[in-house]
C-alpha cells in the first residue's frame, strides 16, 4: 500500500491486505540496493500465517519516493518513525544484509519497539570495498551485475529453486534496476560507515535468530558467526546457499522464522 509519510509517497508491502490492530506485526527490512521484492516469498506467506506484515521500500527504493537516508542511524530513525506513523507499537524485525545493521541499531536505540529479531545473511559491520563503491557510483548497472552474481551460489546462478520458471540472476538484477540509480552507492556507503554494530549487539536482551549462508560472498559466514557470539541469546542456522538467501532457500528460511516466532509466544 502507498502512504503519504513525511511529505513523500512511501510504499510498504503488506501482502495485499490492510493492517489490523490485534495482530502481531512482522517488519521486513531490505538490504542495500534492494526493495520489498527481496521478500516476495516471505511477505504473503507470513500474512497467511496470521501476522500483519510490513515490508517498506526505503526512500528512493522500489516504489518509494523521497530523499535517501545516508547512514544506518538515519535508516533506523526513518523506520521507527514510519512504525509510529502506522501506529505499530511493537514488531518482530527481520533484516536482510544492510537491513540487519538497521535492526541492530534499532534494538539498541528503540528497544521498546522490538519484540523479536531475525538476522538474515547479516553481520555487525559490512565493510564494502572501494571497487564496488566506485562502480556503484560510476556505473550502477555494472555494480548490480557484480552484486547479483556474487550474491548467489551455484543454485541461484543456475536458476535452481522451487519457484517455477524463475531466473534468479536476471530477476535480482531487475529488482535492483527498479530503484533510483543513486540508491546503491548511498546504501553501500551507509554500510561502510557503520561502526556501532558490536556495541548495539551487546545490548540485546531478547532471544534472536540468525540465518546465515555458507557460501555468502557479501557478508561472509565468519562475520555472521561473530555477530551471533556477541548477542547474549542468538540461535543460528547455516543454509547451503549464497547471500540472497530469501530467494535461494525461501522454504527453509520461512520454516526457521516460523519456529522462531512460535518460540516467542
Amino acid at each position: 500500500m502507498y502512504k503519504d509519510f513525511k511529505g513523500n509517497k512511501v510504499y510498504l508491502s503488506t501482502g495485499g491486505l490492510n493492517l489490523v490492530n490485534d495482530k502481531e506485526t512482522l517488519c521486513f527490512v531490505h538490504g542495500a540496493g534492494q526493495n520489498h521484492y527481496s521478500f516476495t516469498q516471505q511477505i504473503r506467506y507470513f500474512v497467511s500465517q496470521g501476522y500483519n506484515v510490513v515490508a517498506p521500500d526505503f526512500p528512493g527504493h522500489g516504489f518509494s519516493e523521497g530523499y535517501q537516508t545516508t547512514s544506518i542511524e538515519e535508516d533506523m530513525l526513518w523506520l521507527s518513525e514510519l512504525l509510529a506513523f502506522l501506529k505499530i507499537e511493537k514488531a518482530t524485525f527481520i533484516g536482510h544484509s544492510q537491513g540487519c545493521l538497521t535492526i541492530l541499531e534499532l534494538a539498541e536505540k528503540k528497544p521498546e519497539l522490538v519484540m523479536g529479531l531475525v538476522f538474515v545473511a547479516g553481520a555487525m559491520s559490512i565493510p564494502v570495498n572501494d571497487f564496488l563503491i566506485d562502480t556503484s557510483i560510476n556505473n550502477p548497472e555494472k555494480a548490480y551485475d557484480l552484486m547479483v552474481t556474487w550474491g548467489q551460489d551455484i543454485y541461484g546462478s543456475f536458476s535452481i529453486s522451487d519457484w517455477p520458471g524463475h531466473n534468479h540472476l536476471a530477476e535480482g538484477n531487475a529488482v535492483m534496476k527498479m530503484n533510483d540509480p543513486s540508491v546503491l552507492s548511498t546504501d553501500l556507503k551507509s554500510c561502510n560507515l557503520y561502526e556501532n554494530g558490536k556495541q548495539a549487539a551487546s545490548t540485546i536482551n531478547i532471544n534472536c535468530l540468525a540465518v546465515l549462508a555458507k557460501f555468502d560472498m557479501m557478508t561472509p559466514l565468519k562475520k555472521g558467526l561473530q555477530m551471533v557470539e556477541n548477542i547474549k541469546q542468538c540461535d543460528y542456522k547455516i543454509l547451503e546457499c549464497g547471500h540472497f538467501l530469501p530467494i535461494e532457500q525461501p522454504k527453509e528460511l520461512n520454516a526457521l522464522i516460523k519456529n522462531y516466532l512460535n518460540s516467542l509466544k
Binding site: 543456475f158 536458476s159 520458471g165 524463475h166 531466473n167 536476471a170 531487475a174
Partner: peptide, 18 residues
Amino acid sequence: IATLEQRLASLDGGVSCV
C-alpha cells in the same frame, strides 16, 4: 517443465518464463 522454463529464461536473459 520448470527446468525447461528456468533454462529458457536464463538463455534469453529474462527474469522468468512459462
